[in-house]
Design a protein around this nucleic acid. Sequence first.
DNA 1: GCACCTCTGACCTTTTCTGACTTTATTGTA
DNA 2: TACAATAAAGTCAGAAAAGGTCAGAGGTGC
Lengths: 153, 153
Amino acid sequence: MGNLADFIEQYLRNILLTQRKVELQRRELAKMFRCAPSQINYVLETRFTFEKGYLVESKRGGGGFIRITLVPQDNGDFVQTVESLIPEKLDAEVVEDVLEKLAAWELLDSTDVVLCRELFNKYFSDLHGESAAILRAKLVKAIILVIGFKNKE
Amino acid sequence: MGNLADFIEQYLRNILLTQRKVELQRRELAKMFRCAPSQINYVLETRFTFEKGYLVESKRGGGGFIRITLVPQDNGDFVQTVESLIPEKLDAEVVEDVLEKLAAWELLDSTDVVLCRELFNKYFSDLHGESAAILRAKLVKAIILVIGFKNKE
DNA sequence: GCACCTCTGACCTTTTCTGACTTTATTGTA
DNA sequence: TACAATAAAGTCAGAAAAGGTCAGAGGTGC
């Protein structure tokens, strides 16, 4: 956690902790962090994506601005979300994709992802046969749910 | 016990004696031990594996890092206990007994037990066939590991 | 001598960051 | 009103700053 992008991200997320929108000027923010204005775009593109739950709007010209809006997370049922994000059947090669998707949705952090991956290698890498894909999906779901539950505790 | 890899391992384990995570830069560590950066990877690959109770994450690019996290496992007798309490094969009717035993040993709290039970009902009540019992055992172990990991976080 | 563990260096990939150039919007002015 | 000046933000190629990979050289013990 030592680079500029992370700090800027932190700054913005902090604001979004108390407000649903931030509106600011790219130029000002860049000045604040003593960086090139295009750095701000980099942060927005890599950290404040729709996948992660943000909407970014902007306007050029005089009175221009950048606005970030928090997308209301359908914060309903964690179980629902996991169910909808993970298909009924899961081939081994797809497990990694699913983990990344869950990370993008910030349902898992990076350490959780590594933990899941390792658990799979250790215990469930040799699943085969008829219903392996179904079973794999269930296993992933179960483990994700445990992690998710614990993350909220 | 005299080669570089051992010294680097020692150094890192020492830190992990007092912290559950180390985060450092490969370049810096290599400089410290006057070796090639790739030597660090060798140490990580041979000494800090999941099997041995570690999770390793890393990030490239500016502000990159390597992070090692201790999985509660070989320290104390967590895995020993888990391994001895959970047999290789687990019949469905025995799952509940195992959960209770784990609770008695305070490896799970009462909430964890309910969580496990529900997950089993939801996803794995219909396991059958040859290897169901083995799978059931692995699953319980995996879940216990997650819970143990998360409880320490 | 063979098998296995260490270790390095050359080359690769990913992530961050900047600067030059482009596009768009507003404002002031003839 | 048309047009120039000004004030934003956007784009993108490429430099810089990490870490990753892998073949093969060098040890060590049997």
